[in-house]
Computed example of a mutant assay.
Amino acid sequence: MDNFTAFYQTIGPALSLLVVITFLLAGAVKGVIGLGLPTIAMGLLGLAMPPAQAAALLIVPSTLTNVWQLATGGHLLALLRRLGPMLGAIFVGTLAGSAWLGISSGPWAAHGLGAALLVYAVYGLIGPQLRLATSREGWLGPLCGLVTGLVTAATGVFVMPAVPYLQSLGLSRDEMIQALGLSFTVSTVALALGLAGQDALGGEALGASLLMMAPALLGMLAGQWLRQRISAAVFKRCFFVGLAVLGGHLLLNG
């Protein structure tokens, strides 16, 4: 039990409360729009702790919520066949990036995290709706996967350019939700291995991450309830505006 609570005893009650609120909010966003848990968690926690520490906290909630997401929809085998090269490249890119770059605690780390969040937010707000020709998936999928892996290793954010690529494939809503779950699960597992290789994911960090499952799942349930009562499009727009502000702050101030 000490491994579960030692991290929170170390950081104190105020920062522990921020962590809990962050995962409640991140889970709620994921419940409404189907993504955003690790992005919100990295952005908000990046305001108060090194990105490597924030990334370690999101491993268990991100993995389990994304496995839950990819398990529903009935398109898993078809998506694995279609997206396999991209997913493999994400895994390789994340591990290679972790060995080469890693999520540093240096002065540039928070700036890099802010840049990644800002780029994603701007794309979400004004990015064009692309449609990729099937003939280009063979080379563009692995390339996007490799770049996504490198960005993941450096910042802990694994949405760019994987999300725009998946959105360009013309998938149905159910296929898209499963595809996002697949991509994010592979990214999270590879990130966990990369953090372990940097000695940033020991028993204490895993225990602290496991405790965040409860607020993340509670937030998801609240978000799913909220989704039936608000406009998902308006909520998504507010999410990206908030993410842009958060990313801009981290980019400028670290």
Rank of each mutant, 00 (worst) to 15 (best):
L45E: 03
G27W: 08
R82Q: 12
W139L: 08
A6H: 04
L17D: 03
S98N: 06
Y165A: 05
G88Q: 05
F240S: 13
V19Q: 01
F239G: 14
P85K: 11
L80F: 07
W139N: 04
G36F: 15
G197Y: 01
S98Q: 00
V151P: 10
L17C: 10
E204K: 03
P51Y: 00
A6D: 15
L125W: 00
S209Q: 04
P128N: 05
S183N: 13
S183K: 08
S183T: 11
A26F: 12
F4W: 11
A89N: 02
T155Y: 13
V67L: 12
L95P: 05
S231I: 08
G194F: 02
G254Y: 15
V157W: 11
F4G: 00
A216D: 15
V19K: 04
F7I: 11
V147A: 04
K236P: 06
F184W: 05
G12W: 03
G248T: 03
L166Q: 06
L143D: 14
T155N: 11
G247K: 11
S98R: 01
L118G: 08
W100D: 01
L117K: 05
G207P: 08
L125E: 00
L37R: 07
A121G: 03
L221P: 15
L226E: 00
I177P: 08
A14T: 14
K236C: 09
A233H: 06
I90V: 08
P107W: 09
L64V: 15
R173D: 06
T155A: 08
L243R: 04
S62N: 06
G203Y: 07
A200K: 06
A232F: 14
L15G: 10
V163E: 15
M42H: 14
V29E: 11
D199G: 04
A208G: 04
